[in-house]
Design a protein around this nucleic acid. Sequence first.
DNA 1: TATTGTTATACTCTATAACTATA
DNA 2: TATAGTTATAGAGTATAACAATA
Lengths: 144, 144
Amino acid sequence: MAAAIGALTLRATRAGLYSRLTSGVQGVDATTYPVLSGLARVGPVTATKLAEAIGMDRTVATRYATRLQEAGLIDRRPDPADARATELVLTAEGERAVTALRGAMESFLAEEMATWPPGEAAAFAMRLEHLTESLVQGEAGRSC
Amino acid sequence: MAAAIGALTLRATRAGLYSRLTSGVQGVDATTYPVLSGLARVGPVTATKLAEAIGMDRTVATRYATRLQEAGLIDRRPDPADARATELVLTAEGERAVTALRGAMESFLAEEMATWPPGEAAAFAMRLEHLTESLVQGEAGRSC
DNA sequence: TATTGTTATACTCTATAACTATA
DNA sequence: TATAGTTATAGAGTATAACAATA
């Protein structure tokens, strides 16, 4: 179990997964992927809030957002409620990219879980999610 | 499920896990951890073979091995069968460090899995291992 | 000629600090 | 004064290439 977690969190594994997912989509790479998928998950938000949501530094998030904007996948618009804030939103092309990325991930998972007993996938996902939360919380707790 | 995998493979999560594990052990950090634990797993090997085993570049493995050697955790000895090769081995202090690291990981996992139904842990570990293998193999296969 | 170990170099990613504009 | 966004700078990590020694 420890070995499996170790292997899954290896930089090479992570980089391999992301680059495989993004290889078919123009304008996205392993580093900008979390920003794009995060934006798709939480909807239009400011860069600071998005950075918090995906566990990334503000400055990195804004830089990657600029890259994605240059690629035409996301857009910036002023927040009507706060003139300081800028909201990030997916463009139509960005939506298509996200759809493609999700499709690639889902087809991989479907293939992987094809032989699993019914109902196992949900239980596995729940445990994996909880495990990750514990890891993140444990880290956050350490700074207190 | 995709979200759980995404979160687990996030750089921040990985860095957090590794730095938490290694925070109590002198001479090991998040970057040298895979080298040390890999060496403990596969036994005395050359830097090139160790790098392959843990999915890391040869040059990076040798540099991190040097760091670990300077910290007194591993040692280099000539391979009797091949004068070109140098075998990496754990020192007594390195063995103690690995034991401490494994203990930290296992206590975390034990705490996490305390509420799981009996037998679930083994099934979960098996599926997680298989999932990771598929990710790695899929990446390797792409280069052919 | 190929391989091992290593070092040098350049490149990318990340983080700290600082700046501007607005609340 | 504090916060959002951004940019600049420095530091760490990684990968490509090249070297000497040996198979």
